[in-house]
Design a protein around this nucleic acid. Structure first.
Lengths: 328, 328
DNA sequence: CGAGCGCGTGAACATTTGATCAAAACTCGA
DNA sequence: TCGAGTTTTGATCAAATGTTCACGCGCTCG
């Protein structure tokens, strides 16, 4: 008889409610609102993207309890969080971000200070954060922002994203990640604003960082010569731009001098050190970081977890058997 | 040596999180957990059913704004809530329940008392209620429970379900809906506990009831002779077992005397009177109930709404023409 | 001890949803 | 006014999901 709603695009909320609360199909909504089915599909995706539709799972079940406790036995960890493994890089990143967000939320306390490292893995976390886990949380960058690393999100934006997601306050470290020269870096370090933020980071309660191995945001953005220099000195990985060798000892090098951020020793001062990383290329670095206590909370995926467990069992130094695939 | 999880049925929370938070497909979850895909589908449905998975649409957009405002112009209503129309009875009931739940939640205030009528439509509401709309709400049955009406949920259970859903307290009316004889009904009515609850209902702030027309829970459960008697006296519908004629006046009859519950006049004492009904068989009753002010908040579906608008245009004096369309 | 009954299971099928791609509309600048 | 690039759109196809049905297992009751 009558057309209830004509052509003008109906609000997302209406579409979303017809779908999720009233159980109409995309096609039925399309007919009702005078849209194409595809359009409805897209509007619904949009509604989820912007958060009009929120799907909550009321459960604190861990996904891979077995792997998590095995990791806790094999390495000196406070906690391990393991998520599913994916072939597809985009899905893997998304999923790991979700696990890491949950881990971070679980470790947040009111008025805590969280130091945030610059890393691709860490950058996937904020979108999964929800306010409410804790109040008055402060997010502080662990290093300077961007300069020297091109397309990467800056650590400043990262801290802001964390604050926006979890609710809280973000601090700014007004310096580049890498200065052109050691001397320039020193000038930055002497800036009062930089010092203040770095001090805040040193005294943080929680630290969240990625781990660089044969791949990683930093490694991929260093010049070949810089990289070769660190490798030459035995570096197997880095945390927030600080390279370490197979014994977990800091590897001093020129990059180190140009970097504005916490030292490995300073990182260790943070009581809760969350490391987020996955993939075969990071196994060796992860194994060192874990066994040497550089990080004491691990977020990774199941296949990396299995690799770490295999390595812990074998405990062979360098030249590792990198291919241990398994799902089940 | 690495077996993440075998065969034992994994917790619902894990399945749900793999699906909703990590975006695995049913098949991937099945492979991971050693289940069949179908089983995963069923577990996920179960998770939604029991509320482990909650989908919230953050929006207060109304679905049929045009129809709702047209109804408000055509009838003396405080509010109208219109939901989508379905062929399928089960879907229709579910959907109307969702709209009604939203309506009730919107009208709840802290410490309000809500009188709950016994009706199939009303019975679909509680499952859609969420705690939090208001605190310390009291739900009181409007009539006695069950006795005389067979398979129907009792009004007592209904009040309990409301209280469980919205959070709050339920009262009991310890009496049957229909006594065998008027004399027996009188005995019940004199019971102090019955009186207390009925008084509570009379002084309720909000009333939620179905409307019986040519169909309805009560009508379908009355004996043929009882029904014929009411029809003979001009009854066109009922609210909570009280029949009214085309002028909205109470139709006294034997059923009336045997029923334990509020009278029409008492119902009118409640300031907010929500009527929930849909379907052509209820159009006439609805039209009377609306125009005579027996109810002043309407919850219905779009096709019934259109029917009501057409009827209002046809016989009401200066009503707005029914061609009200286009919400957006 | 066997037949029946009911529940849980998965296979096959139907429906719904999502992804890809090419055409259309629209923007912006010359 | 035209055109190159960008965005928006819907058709087509592939994947994922939901439904139905028949089977098998275990239980109860005769």
């Amino acid at each position: 008889m009558e057309r209830t709603n004509d052509h003008r695009q109906p609000p997302l909320g209406k579409i979303a409610r017809l779908y999720y609360e009233h159980g109409l199909t995309h096609q039925e909504i399309a007919d009702l609102c005078g849209l194409s089915r595809i359009k409805v599909t897209r509007l619904l995706a949009e509604a989820r993207r912007v958060g009009i539709v929120e799907i909550t799972v009321h459960s604190d079940d861990h996904l891979f309890v077995g792997l998590e406790s095995a990791l806790g036995r094999a390495y000196p960890l406070r906690q391990a969080w393991v998520g599913p493994t994916f072939e597809d890089e985009a899905r893997a990143a998304h999923s790991l971000g979700a696990v890491a967000a949950e881990c971070v939320s679980a470790l947040l306390e009111d008025r805590a200070t969280v130091a945030v490292g610059l890393s691709a893995s860490v950058a996937t976390i904020p979108r999964h954060l929800r306010p409410g886990a804790a109040r008055d949380v402060n997010f502080v960058p662990l290093t300077g922002s961007g300069g020297g690393i091109s397309r990467a999100a800056s650590s400043h934006e990262l801290a802001l994203a964390f604050a926006a997601g979890a609710g809280g306050h973000a601090y700014h470290l007004p310096a580049p990640l890498l200065a052109r020269t050691p001397q320039a870096a020193q000038v930055w370090r002497e800036d009062p604003a930089v010092q203040e933020t770095l001090e805040r980071a040193v005294s943080a309660d929680v630290l969240v960082a990625g781990i660089g191995g044969r791949t990683g945001l930093l490694v991929e953005n260093l010049s070949a010569s810089d990289l070769a220099a660190t490798r030459g000195r035995g570096a197997v990985g880095d945390i927030s731009g600080r390279f370490f060798d197979a014994n977990g000892a800091a590897v001093p090098c020129e990059v180190d001098d140009r970097l504005i951020g916490l030292s490995l020793a300073q990182l260790r001062a943070v009581p809760v050190r969350i490391g987020v990383a996955r993939g075969a290329a990071k196994l060796q670095a992860l194994r060192v970081a874990l066994s040497q206590g550089l990080i004491n909370v691990l977020v990774t995926d199941s296949s990396t977890a299995e690799g770490l467990l295999a390595a812990a069992g074998a405990d062979a130094p360098a030249g590792a058997p990198a291919s241990a695939e398994a799902s089940s």
